[in-house]
Design a protein around this nucleic acid. Sequence first.
DNA 1: TTGAAAGCGCTAACAC
DNA 2: GTGTTAGCGCTTTCAA
Lengths: 342, 342
Amino acid sequence: MAAGSRKATLHDVAKRAQVSVASVSNYLNDYPYMKAATRERIRKAIDELGYVANRQARNLRSGRTGLISLSLPDLNQIYFAELAEEMIKQAREHGYRVIIESTGNDRRREIDSARAMASNMTDGLILSPTQLRAEDVHELEGDYPLVILGERVFGAPAPHVLIANEAAAQAATEHLLKAGCRTIAVIGGTLDDTVASSRSMRTKGYVAALADYGRPLRPELIREIGDWTSAEGAKAVRDMYAQGIRPDGIFALNDLLAMGVISQLREMRVRVPESVRVVGFDDIDEAKYTIPSLTTVDPDRAQVARLGIESILSQLEAGGRAPRSRIDVAFRLRYRDSSPRV
Amino acid sequence: MAAGSRKATLHDVAKRAQVSVASVSNYLNDYPYMKAATRERIRKAIDELGYVANRQARNLRSGRTGLISLSLPDLNQIYFAELAEEMIKQAREHGYRVIIESTGNDRRREIDSARAMASNMTDGLILSPTQLRAEDVHELEGDYPLVILGERVFGAPAPHVLIANEAAAQAATEHLLKAGCRTIAVIGGTLDDTVASSRSMRTKGYVAALADYGRPLRPELIREIGDWTSAEGAKAVRDMYAQGIRPDGIFALNDLLAMGVISQLREMRVRVPESVRVVGFDDIDEAKYTIPSLTTVDPDRAQVARLGIESILSQLEAGGRAPRSRIDVAFRLRYRDSSPRV
DNA sequence: TTGAAAGCGCTAACAC
DNA sequence: GTGTTAGCGCTTTCAA
């Protein structure tokens, strides 16, 4: 494109190639019935003018934007950052781009993410709410493609992609039981199940595994925490030992907690995995690199991303919101050195 | 909005309020000269119809999208995830949203991020290249608002936001020198400065600090690594000790490396900070929570984000690309427990 | 203070 | 095969 000239339009290309704008549009959209000569003239004109189609005009006309909204609690949480990365990858493979909204666990902003959909700025919304209440579900009504992530909202009028928090926690606990653990602590657990959250679901899985094995549930082994940081994981271990509790297995409800747990145990010269086996949750990048490397639940972010994006695209193709449904994502246990292989 | 009806347009509102579309448009854009009665009729009609303006139409007409492109290497790297979070926050404060592109350190995709700007899909681009070459700089030409992040490309025809890698590394090293360290290792450093990268810049700062203090540069203290993971940090320490090297200060070129360093030292029963002082770089969330908490360089992501977004917006206001310039971001040392306070 | 009308740049009928 | 034309839904002169 000649510097200084205004941006070329379809019209300019048509004029230069001596064809109609429709032909140029057809060319751009790979219309098959076109003489090679015409095609070539258009190609040349586009090339000479450095023409690039204006997305906004195309969007207005076609009603599509090629954009998907992804609304997550917080990119500072590694899990969500890694999920966002996968979403971007998946979207790109389908020719889509992603607008990321970070709600900061703010109910208002979770609602706003949904409301923004009324303005047709993007083709669909993937929403991971943490604060939305049952009474807010009507905010999610609409005809636009929507996918809900996570445990928080049920009854939303849309497909719902769920990681198997409960089953995965049960499997992780079972893994410890099979390894011979008799006293298994849960770091980050809670018996409060008034709201569904990943911590309550994961705790349920733990409880279920104990029940399956006929083991008693000892509430003092369920250690509530504040933030999901390694410091909290370390502190939970210190507190537990100070109270005279000596677990031989520890299930940390996320990997950062688990890193704190391992580091505290090493500090106290408790051997991992010989004396205490440790399992985490999330399979963040770093889990491979801790010492010892961390056995953990891989909730298959790639799959969550794939299912989420594909659902949006199929809703789009179908011309509107899919009915409420539940899509479960399989998890995998990643066996590493913090627990004995099975 | 009545369920089932198609989305209301400006036209519908105008008809219902018995005014022209222009008046409704004026209303939406806070045009001041309007009779209260008219205003009220429009407000009511909008309310009754549940009207929300179509962004695409508005964009086409106004030439603005309210979107900024942010192109980063990889959200799995905590630094970039936290930077993205800040960018989203800053953008939101100005009424903008952010499309995040993850290039995966792929030169092709870094170039594509720039090329995509020709289609007017977003109002500006903030690009953090890691693979772009001098010969690619012409790809960055154009009239759209652009900001470059990082050391990789110089001579780009746009404002360039730089964190003070060299000065910050120098200050971190000085901090160790002042604390009495005589043998300071750099984990992740390199003396290869054929390409400017954060590791080469940071190593330069280290070298400069030693020179200032009249200390010899001992190449065996500069430990190259593979990935920026805690495992590599731990391994570097093990290797160093295996070679009989006994540093009393360690400067890890990012926090993940530092976490591995600390964990390995504790494993070896080397006391931090008493026997070895450790300093990191990045000030990721977790740095506050390691044990001991990590002294590190805070490169002020919030500032990088603020300056980046504000530059885009001021270019937008000015109607086009700002000339090449260099915007330096001040760093801060965060003194924590892995080194003695000063 | 309000309205009519002309597009923004493109796509999609439909005609030829 | 290719061209003509009517919009997509909004903003923006300009006139009244």
